[in-house]
Amino acid sequence: MSNLQNHVLIVDDEYLIAEGLRAQVEELGMVVCGTAATADRAVALAQQFRPIIVLMDMRLQGDKDGVDAALAIHETVGSKLIFITGSREPATMARIQLDHPSAVLFKPISDTQLSTAINVALGL
């Protein structure tokens, strides 16, 4: 069984982006405990696996967004949140800041950007 301290949850409603993030995370030697396309699924997986890091897209399937999921995960699990978004709209950025994320990355993200953001979130 792998160390739960290196588990990462990926939340993105676009399958190909989620799988690309999975490959990047696994290249860093971390374990992806699951992927979710909706806020409710993200919260359920976070509560089940208690990941150290959650990579969170802003726009998700359903009527809840990434901030809704992030706030619930932060409150119940305490995972570090890294938002990954394609939007730089002021309203989106203000909403993301409600959760005090460890980082906000803009798509597309490089391996170096992801690695740096994860290391900062983990205090490395």
Results as ranks from 00 to 15, higher is better:
residue 37 A to L: 01
residue 41 R to W: 00
residue 75 E to L: 00
residue 18 A to C: 09
residue 37 A to Q: 06
residue 48 Q to M: 11
residue 76 T to C: 05
residue 52 I to A: 04
residue 15 Y to N: 07
residue 29 G to V: 07
residue 41 R to T: 07
residue 17 I to H: 12
residue 46 A to I: 00
residue 48 Q to S: 09
residue 15 Y to C: 04
residue 28 L to A: 07
residue 49 F to A: 09
residue 15 Y to H: 07
residue 55 L to C: 10
residue 53 I to F: 01
residue 64 K to Q: 14
residue 50 R to F: 01
residue 71 L to W: 00
residue 80 K to F: 01
residue 76 T to E: 14
residue 74 H to M: 00
residue 46 A to Y: 05
residue 70 A to P: 15
residue 67 V to S: 08
residue 38 T to N: 09
residue 41 R to A: 14
residue 43 V to E: 13
residue 85 T to Q: 08
residue 47 Q to N: 13
residue 58 M to D: 00
residue 76 T to W: 02
residue 31 V to Y: 13
residue 36 A to Y: 05
residue 69 A to P: 03
residue 78 G to F: 04
residue 67 V to F: 05
residue 21 L to N: 10
residue 21 L to M: 14
residue 35 T to P: 00
residue 67 V to A: 07
residue 34 G to P: 13
residue 34 G to V: 04
residue 77 V to F: 08
residue 51 P to M: 05
residue 28 L to K: 12
residue 74 H to T: 08
residue 27 E to H: 15
residue 59 R to K: 15
residue 50 R to K: 14
residue 47 Q to G: 15
residue 78 G to N: 09
residue 57 D to M: 10
residue 74 H to V: 03
residue 79 S to R: 08
residue 76 T to Q: 15
residue 34 G to S: 07
residue 51 P to W: 07
residue 29 G to A: 01
residue 34 G to Q: 08
residue 27 E to D: 15
residue 64 K to A: 12
residue 57 D to G: 13
residue 73 I to M: 10
residue 71 L to A: 08
residue 37 A to E: 15
residue 39 A to L: 01
residue 84 I to R: 02
residue 40 D to G: 06
residue 71 L to Q: 07
residue 48 Q to H: 12
residue 73 I to L: 11
residue 46 A to K: 01
residue 21 L to W: 03
residue 61 Q to L: 09
residue 52 I to R: 12
residue 79 S to A: 14
residue 49 F to D: 10
residue 72 A to F: 05
residue 69 A to E: 08
residue 38 T to G: 04
residue 28 L to W: 12
residue 65 D to G: 03
residue 85 T to L: 09
residue 31 V to T: 15
residue 27 E to A: 15
residue 23 A to E: 15
residue 46 A to Q: 04
residue 33 C to A: 12
residue 56 M to C: 06
residue 85 T to S: 11
residue 43 V to W: 04
residue 52 I to L: 04
residue 19 E to G: 00
residue 68 D to Y: 13
residue 32 V to D: 13
residue 15 Y to T: 09
residue 70 A to D: 11
residue 83 F to D: 07
residue 49 F to G: 00
residue 47 Q to H: 03
residue 66 G to E: 09
residue 33 C to R: 03
residue 52 I to M: 12
residue 55 L to F: 08
residue 24 Q to P: 02
residue 68 D to I: 00
residue 61 Q to R: 06
residue 83 F to E: 03
residue 39 A to C: 07
residue 36 A to L: 02
residue 62 G to R: 12
